[in-house]
Design a protein around this nucleic acid. Structure first.
Length: 280
DNA sequence: TTCGACACATACGT
DNA sequence: GACGTATGTGTCGA
């Protein structure tokens, strides 16, 4: 097959090539201080996050398709601390009145923000059944610290059904807090709301809402950022955003047939190659 | 033009 | 290697 024809071939829906690392998340930014309860030492949460499916870098611009799924993973750790610190210590933050607030547990949430007006836009999550299953907003998850698994792991863990495989891979993403009574008195895990907690948030089959308007004007695009937020929960009614990490601005292509023209896509790929060659 | 619904195609996991 | 799934995208019609 000639190169020309190859460039004009779509990637099949179930091809492993649909998995590729997307726009890199910027370093996490703290929005509220966190202190160790034992020593009052100020500590810094580091959010790890990566897009694993659904975005292409075309001429230096990150592009996704409104009709297509994307996949994203996130986790966090405390800078310069072992994850085991959760077994022995807990954390405080400060509310708007300057009062010390105990953090009972941490949660993470995925959001999308429109850059033009700084407003949140809705995301939806499907099941593998797509149209035949429920459609919900991506859930906020209760989390403990963990490293982020590699891109290849995310690719390998998609759509597995074999029970043994599922169980072994599950250990990467969730864990059970066992023997709460055996934990040190100060362990934050004692105040977690459930025994089952998330180590790595895996957001699969995420899409922008079908009602999203991707266009700023008929000829210009809106821009969006994907954002992971880390919260400290103090009571059922009160939680505090502690840190967030977000992608650079992205463009979402809508359902217009022009967005599906292979010749246009090939041309863009050629231009991207040229731009790269010029750089070197 | 846009969106919900349904249809088709095709690589993947078992 | 056959069979059932999952998912990009083509299409119809309101």
């Amino acid at each position: 097959m000639s190169k020309q024809l190859h460039a004009l071939k779509r990637t099949a829906p179930r091809s492993g090539d649909q998995y590729k690392v997307g726009p890199p998340f910027e370093p996490s930014k703290s929005t509220r201080p966190i202190y160790l309860c034992s020593t009052n030492q100020k500590v810094f949460p580091i959010i790890h996050a990566r897009v694993d499916r659904g975005y292409d870098d075309i001429n230096g611009i990150w592009i996704g398709y409104k009709r297509n799924y994307f996949t994203l993973v996130s986790s966090f750790q405390i800078e310069n601390k072992s994850n085991n610190i959760f077994l022995t210590d807990s954390f405080n933050t400060i509310n708007d009145n300057g009062e010390t607030i105990q953090i009972l547990y941490f949660t993470m949430k995925l959001k999308a923000i429109c850059c033009e007006d700084d407003k949140e836009v809705p995301l939806v999550q499907h099941t593998a059944k797509r149209d035949n299953g429920p459609q919900v907003p991506p859930p906020e998850m209760t989390v403990i610290p963990s490293e982020l698994p590699d891109h290849e792991i995310i690719k390998q863990t998609a759509n597995i059904r074999n029970g043994e495989k599922v169980a072994s891979y599950n250990k990467i993403f969730i864990t059970d807090i066992e023997n709460i009574e055996m934990l040190e008195p100060r362990s934050i895990l004692r105040t977690y709301p459930n025994n089952q907690v998330t180590k790595v948030c895996k957001y699969e089959r995420i899409q922008f809402s079908s009602s999203l308007n991707c266009k700023r004007t008929p000829t210009t695009n809106k821009h969006f950022r994907l954002r992971i937020e880390l919260f400290g929960v103090s009571t059922l009614e009160e939680k505090f955003m502690l840190s967030y990490s977000e992608t650079p601005p992205l463009i979402i292509r809508g359902r217009s047939p022009s967005n599906y023209d292979l010749k246009i896509r090939a041309k863009q790929t050629q231009e991207a190659k040229k731009a790269e060659e010029t750089k070197q």
